[in-house]
Design a binder for these strands. Structure first.
Lengths: 233, 233
DNA sequence: ATTCTAATATGATATAAGTCATATTATAAG
DNA sequence: CTTATAATATGACTTATATCATATTAGAAT
């Protein structure tokens, strides 16, 4: 849709971090031709649980949560997708309805890539297929870890782990504040707890000198302390 | 190792249920030649968390739990692998240490398939690769569901769901008893709860006419009741 | 049978964490 | 600037579930 220099996937830096890097020049050209860029405002959804996806989305900017509504009406965030990640792959590959919703946690720029291109590349380029498979294997391992954390760690440990995760995956600025700013409610949905519990624990962590904040921005003060807390008791 | 008629993978029925069905006749012949069958007694481990797997295991008989030790020393079962399932694939594909341990929940027969054959087939047979990818995509979806259940459902709901899962995946005999008999402790590890809590809830379910037992064998009496319980309140 | 050990059962208690209520503070909208 | 609305904070209370203790029962070993 857009036609700036960034619209050529061949030159897109973001691609280096996902399975698209295993595509050939010609395949990338096709992707470039058929892809559409779009902006998604904070809070808007990219796709919904139960939808049939017509393609995958490559995150160029911003962060999306992948979440699922539970029977009791609460939203559980299963994964956060940052710049460079491709979302919707699983449903396209399995040819199933999406099991997750994708919602922008801040303003985003995403590229939509029609599933036909993904499927045909999977059928013709074994390197690409293997790369996708490796990514999926990695995602599966991470999901296993989340299962164990959910069932075996206390809410306090999970909140501590969540902040370490945010630092490791999204980084911090020169003053030690996390680049990804989430509301308490968003964090609660990642951790799988009530918003009030999340707020209480964050307050406690601030009092204990583990976390700091400057307005909405949160920062880690004592990383080792957080890690100790997240691991054992 | 063994040489009965069953040792020819080409004829093995079990194969129909896993990704090996996408292999060609010649590939299966190679698998037949290099595979080894072995029996694993109840309680023995097939592989341990942190091990480098030299291949994958195809379950011919019995059931294995795939579990991970949490920091507090408790064992969390992430998945149960029944007849026909291939375990260890994820680690072989990602070329990583295994993130899970596999332990026999009853006496098992498994075939070991060296990773070289798996890797070379992945590199040469796109059908096989796609089949493995589809399986992995399915596993990932299931893992997402487990994450949501773990964080959003009560222990009671999860116990109810576990019995429904056992019925759906392992079946029941003519008298309505589950074919897979697990100890309370095993069930507790699947559900992610304390053994005592698990025992208590099962007792309650028996009193309420949801479950029955005959010695160690457990059976579902009121499936709808269990389902209602597992879903909402 | 008899003994030993593991599995199941149940009570008592402590505690983590959810829920409901109500402030207080930010941020957006007019 | 003022008002409205959303986000954060904290208190009070309830409940689910873990933990510790102790029976009871079943299964294995001798």
């Amino acid at each position: 849709m857009e036609n700036g220099i960034e619209s050529q996937c061949e030159q897109c830096i973001v691609r280096q971090f996902n399975s698209l890097r295993a595509m050939s020049k010609e395949e990338l050209k096709k992707v470039s031709q058929s892809k559409t860029s779009k902006t998604v405002k904070k809070g808007e959804t990219i796709f919904e649980e139960g939808e049939t996806l017509k393609g995958v989305f490559c995150v160029r900017n911003g962060v999306s949560k992948l979440s699922k509504l539970s029977a009791n009406g609460k939203d559980q965030t299963v994964k956060l997708a940052a710049k460079g990640m491709v979302i919707g792959q699983r449903s396209v590959i399995a040819e199933e309805l999406s099991n997750l919703s994708a919602t922008a946690l801040n303003d985003m720029e995403v590229c939509f890539i029609p599933k036909e291109i993904i499927v045909s590349t999977l059928n013709t380029n074994p390197n690409f297929t293997m790369e996708v498979l490796r990514h999926m294997a990695h995602d599966l391992k991470e999901a296993d870890d989340v299962i164990v954390n959910m069932s075996q760690k206390t809410v306090k440990q999970r909140v501590a782990a969540a902040f370490l995760y945010l630092k490791n995956n999204f980084g911090e600025d020169e003053n030690g504040f996390l680049l990804l700013t989430l509301s308490r409610d968003d964090i609660a949905n990642v951790v799988g707890t009530a918003t009030e519990s999340c707020i209480r624990i964050i307050s406690e962590f601030k009092k204990k000198g583990l976390l700091k904040n400057y307005g909405k921005k949160m920062g880690i003060v004592n990383e080792k302390g957080l890690r100790d807390l997240a691991e054992g008791y």
